[in-house]
Nucleic acid binder design. Structure first.
Lengths: 206, 206, 206, 206
DNA sequence: CATGAATGAGTGTTCATTCAT
DNA sequence: TATGAATGAACACTCATTCAT
């Protein structure tokens, strides 16, 4: 019998991914099961195993796209500027935009990474790398450059980077976590605050 | 058979709560089961249902204490000072300390409130209130006071409060989320950064 | 709702055991599942876990009774006689009777012990001991005694014991394995042959 | 896409059989799955169904070869001798060698034939015949011949055959079942004992 | 001849929950 | 007040098998 599901037969794999993503977003990491996904997309649970070897691998796949996006959009933002300070600002904006447009992935990456099997997965899946430390390192070197150029006063670049990251993360994550519940966390509020807060810190670091 | 448990038969309810809290603080929300609790306190699983209608309600009760703690320690911090600016600083410090010493409660309250049964519970359990809006309101009035006193320049107190909260939350939540994975997020780092960042913002708001 | 199953509510545990035994006998070690047992006795699969922690433990329990029986009936047979040769004959008869009356347990113990998790179980369940080596040792010492008394000629008692055991085992196991398919393996045939074969060997060992 | 498997496309069927046999000899009956076979030979699981209607039928085919081997090596052993007594001895030796070198086929044939799909298959597959009765019949006629020649004293040849078979089977099967667990059952022990025991019986039957 | 896609039935196991006592 | 007995639903995962191509 021909499969006449609600979605084009073409892309079962992406249907799985989409639904897995949705369920994860809704119920958290422990709240999504293979069966739920299968039911939701109108396939049998077994079918999922044709596309993903494992629940772990499915989880990982859910993250992967977002991870790639994140890294490249930050890098792009940085390379679009030449002045170190402007680079820092651009990266900050890119970071915020990523969080606003990919709240789920942001969540996975920075808000509750532990919930993910990612740690274990990284050891199992060849080539898997956690993006946070990586991007932190990148931020540190940006700050270093700004210090070298004299735009920021000399100091511990790791500390300064942590400060900037924390601040921007605070704005973004609070919006993601509480956005639905308090009306003071609309996207534009987030952008504005991120800018304000970044400038405050850069000023303090000058 | 006579009950010869290790704890006075008097307060089974609090024994349940204590053990549930312990398990919760240790393993997180998904890491405690009714049976584990029952086994640990030497009662049957059924008994728990004599004191709590539901796992949800037990969970809620577990959180409640933490919520109360949070509210009262912030209030205490505020009332220990008289100057509005000092109050803001004190509340910030208290907020940070709460996050550091009750990471899981902080997690429930601010990092992933939706994922929690608590969110659903708040709608189910009569009189249950989420603490965030409440404490946000408190913060807003603190900021208002500081603006009224001239310590901060006049402006939208909600915006300023959101800014401060975001900044401090960023420091705390990043530490909780990534603390185990990057070594730049030790408790003392967190305290220092929270102070630095708060001062930067207060300066910017002056 | 009161359980009104087909078996007295009294002994669910033994009902499980009985059914497990039956299924094992019928389908072999891999052919019995917790759910099959549950269905057969009219209980839910979960219920089994109230009586046995594990499939392994259930398997082990299936064996246990038979193991105990086996050891004690052989010992009884031996101690009912004083003459070493008569002891050997008596033990042989007891062995055969055990096989004929507990074909399943004989099967588990001697025909296909590997199929059982027993090996693994013995390491997990405290005090679990495999009966075969034990009974082999007992047989060896019986043969030794017969050699010492001059009833059998001096030689390697292990070899002689292995010979006797093999012979009797052959008669019994062939009856169990093929009994249903060839009509020459009725219980009385087995008894007679076991005697004949034992005497042949004892004669050869004299 | 062109098939570029490691084996000539010629005889997929025999490739399947070979691999199935290998898996069967290695892991036993429950240790081989259609997918494992398919993966191993570089074909899809579906392909197997082009050559074998069923797992049962594949299993049967796997056994068939062993069965044929068994029959022919016993026949060869018999026909290599002319004296009926020597024929009996030769057949016994061949029987032992088969058991030692094909323990899993021996297992299927004589140790636990019922547990096997083979039993059911024999009823399902047209023309399928169980080898035991067949070889038992052959043994009976060998014994008859020995009785006729006067080498064995007159009597029931079926009984004598059953006796011999039981004895040799005991040696072989005990070795297969317990070989790994008691060190007194090495191949050479088996051969020696089979000989000893056969002679004892033949003597008793003389 | 061969396959990719898909599935239904089944595996052992855990959990929150109920109910009669 | 407390429990032992029991359960239904769910979990991740495997397997033999089918069917349209």
């Amino acid at each position: 019998m021909v499969k006449t599901g609600t979605l084009g037969t073409k892309d079962v794999r992406s249907a799985i991914l989409t639904e897995a993503t949705r369920l994860f977003e809704e119920n958290g990491a422990d709240g999504f099961s293979m069966r739920q996904i299968a039911d939701a997309i109108g396939y049998s649970a077994t079918t999922i195993y044709l596309y993903f070897t494992d629940k772990n691998h499915l989880m990982y796949a859910v993250c992967e796209a977002g991870f790639a996006d994140f890294g490249s959009s930050l890098a792009a933002a940085a390379s679009a500027e030449t002045d170190p300070m402007e680079q820092l600002r651009a990266v900050g904006r890119a970071y915020v935009e990523f969080g606003l447009s990919h709240p789920l992935h942001y969540d996975v990456m920075f808000i509750r990474p532990q919930a993910w099997a990612i740690g274990r997965l990284a050891n199992e899946i060849a080539g898997a790398e956690r993006p946070e430390p990586e991007s932190f390192v990148a931020l540190v070197s940006l700050v270093s450059a700004a210090m070298d150029s004299g735009a920021l006063r000399a100091g511990d670049p790791r500390e300064a980077a942590a400060l900037i990251w924390s601040a921007v993360h605070g704005v973004v994550s609070l919006a993601i976590s509480l956005g639905d519940q308090i009306d003071a966390f609309e996207p534009d509020d987030v952008r504005r605050r991120a800018m304000t807060i970044t400038e405050s810190i850069l000023t303090a670091l000058r």
